[in-house]
């Protein structure tokens, strides 16, 4: 297939934005010259977007402004923040009207608390990791229960019950060095020991939810 002669792709660029806050172009020119004098090389041929929102709806001669900037070897790409009338003027001058992209509010990544237990969990004991993962350095005995809203990692044998994704997290997993569980459950889907024996090929395993059913993968531990 021949290569198409053109392609349309979206990209984003970082542009300098020049804010015009004064209707009086002579004052603008004076201040601009002062700025350019500080770093003339930096501004030569620099693409600029002119932001007119600082004018608060006051009129300005866009053609004169364009002339003012191009004469100082600045390249105007377009205008932004302009009123309807100013937008029309810009259009007449062959300038694009650009909308500033909305800055997405920065949300801190959701950090889950990991509960670490450095001992064997004995029969009759219950450990619950609320809103997070559970890591156990030791074995979980028959008749013991380990529960987490997130995933469960057991560096030892799992002989009791393990319930991951107790709050409904379907991405939770159960990992154990030796899978001999009485029951494993992720987000409510469960296997009893006999199901587990059918599915668990090796000794170590990772159990997760795929669709509506649990699957187990052996681990190269």
């Amino acid at each position: 297939m021949p290569k198409p002669s053109l392609e349309l792709k979206g990209s984003s660029f970082t542009l300098s934005v020049l804010h015009i806050n004064n209707q009086d172009l002579d004052a603008v020119a004076a201040e601009l010259d002062h700025k350019l004098a500080q770093a003339p090389q930096f501004f030569i041929g620099a693409p600029l977007v002119v932001n007119l929102s600082g004018l608060d709806g006051e009129e300005v001669d866009v053609a004169a402004l364009k002339q003012l900037l191009t004469s100082r070897q600045l390249v105007i790409v377009g205008v932004t923040g302009a009123s309807a009338a100013l937008n029309q003027q810009a259009k007449d001058q062959g300038l694009a009207s650009i909308k500033a992209g909305k800055q997405s509010p920065v949300t801190p990544p959701q950090v889950r608390n990991t509960k670490i237990v450095k001992q064997n969990i004995r029969s009759g004991q219950q450990v619950y990791a609320k809103d997070g993962d559970l890591v156990i350095f030791g074995a979980v005995g028959n008749g013991a229960e380990v529960i987490a809203d997130g995933s469960i990692h057991i560096y030892g044998a799992l002989r009791g019950k393990a319930m991951a994704g107790a709050g409904g997290d379907r991405h939770a997993v159960i990992i154990a060095q030796s899978m001999e569980a009485e029951l494993v459950s992720i987000a409510g889907q469960y296997w009893l020991a006999e199901n587990l024996q059918q599915h668990c090929p090796g000794k170590s395993g990772c159990i997760r939810l795929e669709g509506e059913s649990l699957i187990v993968e052996s681990l190269p531990l």
């Binding site: 064997n120 004995r122 028959n142």
Partner: peptide
Amino acid sequence: VRDSDRILGMLQS
């Protein structure tokens, strides 16, 4: 063995 495991849990808690 199961009951001993239970008692070990009691000893620890």
